[in-house]
Amino acid sequence: TTTITTTNEEDARRIATEWKNKGYTVHVEKRGTTFRIEVR
């Protein structure tokens, strides 16, 4: 599992989409101002 964190919502969406397009399972969680993107 790879975890990526960013405070930028646009980055979070872009990163999540990129990983999904590669065939990975992506889970995005917002904690306060931080977005945690888990890639499996």
Rank of each mutant, 00 (worst) to 15 (best):
V26F: 01
W19A: 04
A16T: 06
R36M: 14
T1M: 13
T6A: 12
T2L: 15
H27S: 12
T6E: 04
E9Y: 13
I37M: 02
N21G: 07
T6Y: 04
E29C: 10
T5G: 03
T5I: 15
R14F: 06
N8W: 05
E38I: 15
R31K: 12
T34C: 07
R14Y: 05
I37N: 00
E10R: 09
T25P: 04
W19S: 02
G23A: 02
K22R: 12
V28W: 07
T25V: 13
R36K: 10
T17Y: 10
G23T: 01
T33M: 12
T3S: 08
K30R: 11
I15Q: 04
R40W: 15
R14D: 05
K30N: 06
T7A: 10
I15K: 03
A16G: 04
K30P: 04
T7N: 13
E9A: 11
R13V: 13
A16D: 01
N8V: 08
T17E: 14
R36Q: 12
R40F: 14
E10H: 09
E29R: 08
K20G: 08
D11V: 10
T5Q: 08
T34V: 14
F35V: 04
T6I: 07
V28M: 08
H27M: 11
E10M: 10
A12H: 02
R13N: 13
E29Q: 09
N21T: 08
T33G: 13
E38T: 15
Y24V: 02
E18M: 12
G32H: 04
T6K: 03
R40S: 15
T6W: 02
T3V: 15
E9S: 07
A16I: 11
V28I: 13
T34S: 10
R13W: 15
E10P: 05
A12C: 06
T5K: 06
K22H: 06
A16Y: 08
T1Q: 10
T1A: 11
R31V: 15
K22Y: 05
A12Q: 02
T5W: 15
R13K: 12
K22C: 05
H27C: 07
R36N: 11
V26E: 00
T25S: 11
D11Y: 10
N8P: 01
I37L: 05
E10W: 09
A16C: 06
D11Q: 09
R36E: 13
F35W: 15
K20S: 11
K20F: 11
T7Y: 12
T3H: 09
H27Q: 09
T2E: 07
G23P: 00
T2M: 15
N21K: 11
V26P: 02
I4G: 01
V28H: 02
V39Y: 04
K20L: 13
K30F: 09
K22I: 05
Y24R: 02
G23V: 00
K20H: 10
W19E: 02
T25F: 12
I37G: 00
T1S: 11
I4W: 12
E29I: 13
V28N: 01
R13E: 12
F35C: 03
I37T: 01
A12I: 03
E18R: 07
N8D: 11
G23Y: 02
I15N: 01
I4A: 03
K30W: 07
R14S: 07
K22V: 04
T3D: 04
V39M: 05
R36L: 15
D11C: 09
W19L: 09
K22M: 10
F35G: 01
K30H: 08
E29V: 12
V26N: 00
T2G: 06
A12K: 01
R31I: 15
V26Q: 00
T7M: 10
E18S: 08
T17K: 10
K30E: 06
R13Y: 15
T7K: 09
K22N: 06
T33L: 12
A16V: 11
G32P: 03
K20D: 04
Y24C: 05
T34F: 12
Y24K: 03
G32R: 03
T1P: 10
T2H: 14
R31A: 11
A12L: 03
T6R: 03
K30D: 05
V39P: 01
E29W: 11
N8S: 13
D11R: 06
D11M: 10
I4C: 03
E18V: 09
R13M: 14
T33A: 12
E18H: 13
V26T: 04
N21M: 12
T25H: 13
W19V: 02
R14V: 06
T34Q: 12
K30A: 06
N8K: 06
R40A: 11
D11E: 14
N8C: 05
T5C: 07
R36P: 01
I4F: 15
T3R: 06
E9T: 04
I4Y: 15
Y24N: 02
G32W: 03
W19K: 02
T17I: 12
T5H: 11
R40H: 13
T17M: 13
Y24M: 04
T1V: 15
K22L: 11
E18P: 00
R31D: 15
R13F: 14
T3C: 07
K20A: 13
I4Q: 04
H27E: 08
H27I: 14
G32S: 04
W19P: 00
T17F: 10
K22S: 05
K30T: 06
V39K: 02
N21H: 08
F35N: 01
R13Q: 12
T34L: 14
I37D: 01
V39N: 01
T3F: 14
T33K: 11
E9I: 11
R14W: 06
T33F: 10
Y24Q: 02
E10L: 09
F35I: 08
V39H: 01
T5P: 02
F35E: 01
G23E: 02
A12S: 05
N8A: 05
